[in-house]
């Protein structure tokens, strides 16, 4: 991808007293890219986002967002930046429309965009109600609406889908897809990779403040070389023939009286499936379970712990 970079982080370290929140992280985010920032709670995701916003300055290294140093106190870049904090909160006594109007004025966004955005996140009917009466999902949607003010070029969304029901989550990702098509950089942070399946072009995994993986999900699968789980079932009638068949085909694990399982590496996977599916094999059913994103994520966390 040759799109121009919007966020450039080079060798950034951030320490709070003696605690290292982020250690020597470098990455580049580009136009039209959706990036998942994944890590456990406390892995340094929020610190990274705060660094990109300029809310905190790096202890070492440089951060550039839309060509500016965000912590330098110049605000041109911030007008083209949208941010949805984790656990977004608003003043409970104002209405949704008033709150959005306030943020639109601060960002110098046209005030008629308030109506458009309320409609876009499905809050038109609730716009004149006090935010104190909103549900968690409605507050999250209002949070998303404020992040979208002023057609941002970079969106930093910190755990955006927590507290959203599946329907809302889908409409949320539809909005993200629109933004991506519009050429915006969207950074989604999450503590679980599964949450973001199919939504992100690229995944950055951080653990204890260190970047441990960066690439597309396919890249990560290739690097991880995780085995595929193959599971076969057989009927009682074939139980006697199974022992002989197992002896021929390899290291199956018995799950119960009807089921066998094996973890196959990428290179032996195909031949194993062929053998299991051949006409003479005494099996009733066959399941192939590719490694889940959670296993992929656990693999990267585990391999990082092993090298420590």
């Amino acid at each position: 991808m040759n799109a121009s970079p919007t966020v450039e982080i080079t060798g950034v370290t951030k320490t709070y007293g003696k605690v290292r929140a982020v250690t020597d992280i470098s990455c580049v985010l580009r136009e039209g890219e959706t990036i998942a920032l994944v890590g456990h709670n406390g892995a340094g995701k929020t610190t990274l986002i705060k660094l990109m916003l300029g809310l905190i300055g790096p202890s070492a290294g440089t951060v550039r967002v839309l060509g500016e140093d965000p912590a330098a106190g110049q605000f041109a870049a911030r007008r083209r930046l949208g941010y949805l904090p984790e656990n977004v909160s608003f003043n409970m006594s104002l209405t949704g429309r008033e709150t959005l109007g306030f943020y639109a004025r601060l960002k110098r966004a046209p005030l008629d965009s308030v109506e458009t955005l309320l409609h876009r996140v499905g809050l038109t009917g609730a716009g004149d109600r006090r935010i104190g009466t909103y549900s968690k999902g409605m507050r999250q949607r209002l949070g998303l609406a404020q992040a979208l003010l002023g057609r941002p070029r970079v969106l930093l969304l910190d755990e955006p889908t927590t507290g959203l029901d599946p329907a809302l989550r889908r409409s949320f990702y539809e909005i993200v897809a629109d933004l991506r098509a519009d050429g915006a950089t969207v950074l989604l942070s999450s503590h679980a990779l599964t949450e973001l399946e199919g939504e992100a072009d690229r995944v950055i995994i951080v653990n204890r403040g260190v970047k441990i993986a960066d690439g597309t999900i396919e890249d990560l699968r290739r690097i991880a070389q995780l085995p595929t789980r193959i599971r076969v079932r057989y009927s009682d009638a074939d139980a006697s023939r199974m022992d002989e068949w197992i002896g021929r085909t390899g290291a199956w694990r018995r799950i119960n009286g009807h089921m066998l399982e094996m973890d196959a590496g990428p290179e032996e996977k195909l031949s194993l499936i062929r053998r299991a599916a051949s006409a003479d094999a005494p099996i009733a059913d066959l399941d192939i379970v590719p490694p889940t994103l959670d296993e992929l994520y656990a693999h990267f966390l585990g391999s990082e712990a092993a090298t420590r």
Partner: peptide, 13 residues
């Protein structure tokens, strides 16, 4: 309450 974090992410000193 967390409202300051959001406010300071806006172009305001």
């Amino acid at each position: 309450r967390g409202t300051m974090l959001l406010l300071l992410s806006y172009p305001i000193g």
